[in-house]
């Protein structure tokens, strides 16, 4: 199985596990889902990319991760502002 296919499978399985637990806990939270998905993508990309070479599709994926990190920062900032406003 190629790394590309393995990565997609693992990421899909991880998303499934996250959603399944959220449904079981009866708390579908998009922010938590996004953060957990981002963690999964980070792990998969880091494990799939080699030390010497990075496949092109993973280079694109790193751009997605960078955007996700910025979005994650925005979510944290919003939460902090909510707490401070109380």
């Amino acid at each position: 199985m190629q790394k590309k296919h393995l990565s997609v499978t693992v990421l899909a399985a991880w998303s499934f596990v996250v959603i399944a637990f959220m449904v079981l806990a009866r708390t579908l939270n998009l922010e938590i889902f996004f953060v957990l998905w981002l963690i999964g993508v980070l792990v998969v990309v880091e494990l799939a990319s080699g030390h010497f070479v990075t496949p092109r599709h993973l280079q694109v994926q790193k751009l997605v991760i960078a955007a996700g990190v910025i979005l994650f920062g925005a979510i944290v900032a919003r939460k902090v502002l909510e707490i401070l406003a109380r």
Binding site: K62, A66, V69, G73, A77, R78, V80, L81, L84
Partner: peptide, 30 residues
């Protein structure tokens, strides 16, 4: 509240810097 705004802006900037670092300067040390 200016303090809250400052904290929020700082967190967003920090995450932007983290994303930039991830893309440009992060290298495997081999």
């Amino acid at each position: 509240d200016p303090v809250a705004l400052l904290i929020g802006a700082g967190l967003v900037c920090l995450s932007g810097a983290g994303a930039f670092y991830y893309l440009r300067y992060r290298r495997h040390r081999i």
